[in-house]
Amino acid sequence: MNFVRKFPKLEQIAPVYAVAVVMIYAWSLSRFFWRFPSWLYYSSAGEIAVIFAYMMVVNLIESVLVLLVPIFMSVILPKRWFYEKFVTKGALLTALSLGYLMYFDNHLHYQNPFPLELVYRTPFILAGILITVFLVDWIGVLDKILTELSDRLIVFLYISIPVSLISLLVILVRNIF
């Protein structure tokens, strides 16, 4: 199958996944530590640990969902368009998209109107992100930086994946028994 041949290998997936993990988990962790002092007011260590576990499970789901996007693009697009530069293009696509989501999230607050103008702008921003992703072929230095950087982020997977899996187990136990 042509599709199977364009499915990225584990060593290609890992650095892209690492970019997603760092951005998604870091965002949640920053919010977690922002709320932490208020939880300390009235929560036990165990309760805070359970909140952390739920957070890790949601982050695991999110990071996997985000990873599916570059994998999907790799599979459906011609090999030369995405697969051959999967790490560079996947990492850039992930970083820019999640960066935009951070910008979007910063506009969400119940006391403010929903940022509808940002929603309307989203297709154009996504188009801009995709153009940038496909232009990366022409910027050799960016290609190198992205490859090196995403490779170095893999170390975080050694922490996030086991902790997320343990968290998943905790949540399953709490909801089954």
Partner: peptide
């Protein structure tokens, strides 16, 4: 079976509406 903690972790934190959600993608 875990309503209280799910409420605190999900509705009141990861997907909260009082402030920006802690869930970057699903929020």
């Amino acid at each position: 079976k875990d309503r209280n903690m799910a409420l605190r972790a999900l509705d009141d934190f990861m997907f909260q509406m009082q402030a920006k959600p802690a869930s970057l993608v699903l929020g």
